[in-house]
């Protein structure tokens, strides 16, 4: 049996095949390169994710009648008249989630009596029983403008205050006590912070 002859080879022969077939082959090659390039050039990625929950705290305090539950808003002092003088027992309650180093008290008067006629005293570690403090008294002073009550308060903690005036107040003047808490009144406030 005679050996099978291979077709003669031609040097530098242009590849055979129809133009359409050549274009198809070229397109397939280009497509292949296009598929390969992005995968080998950086499409392989590794990713690791993790979630961290975060919440911010709050700082706040309110004034309420002694023993009352805290509510938002200013408090009109509940005067109790006794002869020529009157007093009002209130609590300041920390209602935020952060501990406080103090609060700022402001007393506004609506009427003929001046604020300077009202003296405020805190009862630390106890409550007021009339004019008597079961704990330690600490003068807050006359609330002209804003006074800082420098008493540490943990969240939900309350401190008892007694406001006193030597003048009759019934139907003459409404005293509204406001409580402000600034960032600097919160634990960990940086030095010089405002």
């Amino acid at each position: 049996m005679a050996p099978r002859r291979r077709p003669p080879r031609r040097a530098h022969r242009r590849p055979a095949g129809s133009p359409a077939l050549r274009r198809a082959a070229d397109a397939l090659l280009l497509l292949s390169v296009g598929l390969l390039a992005p995968l080998s050039g950086g499409a392989v990625t590794a990713r690791s994710t993790v979630v961290l929950d975060l919440s911010s705290g709050s700082w706040a305090a309110v004034a309420v009648p002694a023993g009352a539950a805290p509510t938002t808003g200013p408090l009109a002092l509940p005067w109790s008249q006794s002869g020529s003088s009157a007093d009002a027992i209130v609590d300041v309650v920390a209602t935020g989630t952060l501990a406080l180093s103090g609060v700022r008290l402001r007393l506004d008067a609506d009427g003929p009596d001046p604020v300077t006629a009202v003296t405020v005293t805190a009862c630390l570690g106890g409550t007021w029983e009339g004019p008597d403090c079961a704990g330690t008294t600490a003068p807050v002073g006359d609330l002209t403008g804003t006074a800082v009550l420098e008493v540490a308060l943990d969240p939900s903690e309350r401190i008892a205050l007694r406001a006193e005036t030597r003048r009759p107040v019934a139907n003459r003047t409404t005293f509204v006590l406001r409580v402000e808490v600034a960032r600097t009144d919160v634990r960990g406030a940086p030095e010089g912070g405002d």
Binding site: L54, G57, S58, W59, A60, G96, E180, A182
Partner: peptide, 23 residues
Amino acid sequence: DETTVDGAPPAETVQGATVALTY
């Protein structure tokens, strides 16, 4: 600085906010 007055924070506040951060 944020000053809370009578228990109410200012209108624009960062207080009492929560967020979940996905890294």
